[in-house]
């Protein structure tokens, strides 16, 4: 595990060395010959104003200013970012997160409520249906019983009336028959009296009439 890291660092070191030589070479080259006097002169000047030779990045006189302003700007930026910027963005993101999860929770809750209501409704419908069936059955049974009873009553009443009617008819028939016999006997006696001129005895007439009636019957 050491070898790859070592290689990376060796490469880095090599690169750094090459760069240092390359960059370090430029100012020394610039200071050669007639420029040397000018360069020495430039040391007394302010940072980076007149020092035009060499890499500006290696002009150490500008370092203090750059570090100073980096410290001020980066320090201020850090405070602003940490105390104002990031909390604001974070609050916006948190608010959205809370809103979304809140909405989801609410939707879940509403769905549960809807499901409960649907279940209650279906239960109520089922109960009502069962109740209606029961009531229908009971009513049918009661109605059947009532109908059967009334039919039986009517039938019984009719039978009684029929019997009465038959009895009355029989009575009237007997009376009528008795009347027929009397009339027939009277008529026979009258006919005998008229034809024979004799008064037949009552017993003989009655016997003859009975015999005739029996014959007809």
């Amino acid at each position: 595990m050491v070898n790859p890291r070592l290689m990376v660092w060796l490469k880095g070191l090599a690169a750094a060395a090459v760069l240092t030589v390359a960059l370090g070479g430029t100012p020394s080259f610039a200071q050669s010959g007639e420029e040397t006097a000018h360069a020495t002169d430039a040391v007394e000047h302010e940072a980076g104003v007149h020092d035009e030779k060499g890499l500006p990045q290696l002009n150490t006189k500008t370092f203090a200013s750059q570090i100073f302003w980096l410290a001020i700007t980066f320090g201020t930026l850090y405070v602003l970012v940490a105390k104002v910027g990031l909390p604001r963005v974070g609050a916006v993101l948190d608010a959205r997160e809370a809103k979304i999860s809140g909405d989801l929770d609410k939707a879940t809750q509403l769905k549960a409520e809807t499901d409960a209501i649907v279940a209650a409704y279906e239960k109520a419908v089922a109960e009502a249906r069962a109740g209606a069936h029961k009531l229908l059955n009971e009513t049918a049974v009661t109605a059947d019983a009532a109908a059967a009873k009334r039919i039986a009553d009517v039938v019984a009443g009719l039978a009684v009336k029929q019997k009465e009617a038959e009895a009355r008819i029989e009575g009237q028939k007997q009376t009528a028959l008795a009347n027929v016999r009397a009339v027939a006997a009277e008529a026979a006696a009258a006919a005998v009296a008229k034809l024979a001129g004799v008064e037949p005895d009552q017993a003989g007439v009655d016997g003859a009439v009975d015999a005739a009636l029996k014959e007809r019957a």
């Binding site: 302010e46 940072a47 203090a64 200013s65 100073f68 302003w69 700007t73």
Partner: peptide, 17 residues
């Protein structure tokens, strides 16, 4: 005793911040 002049570099540091 240090030169901490406001430079073109400082301008863009401020701009970035």
């Amino acid at each position: 005793g240090h030169d901490v002049s406001f430079t073109n570099s400082s301008v863009y540091m401020v701009v970035a911040a």
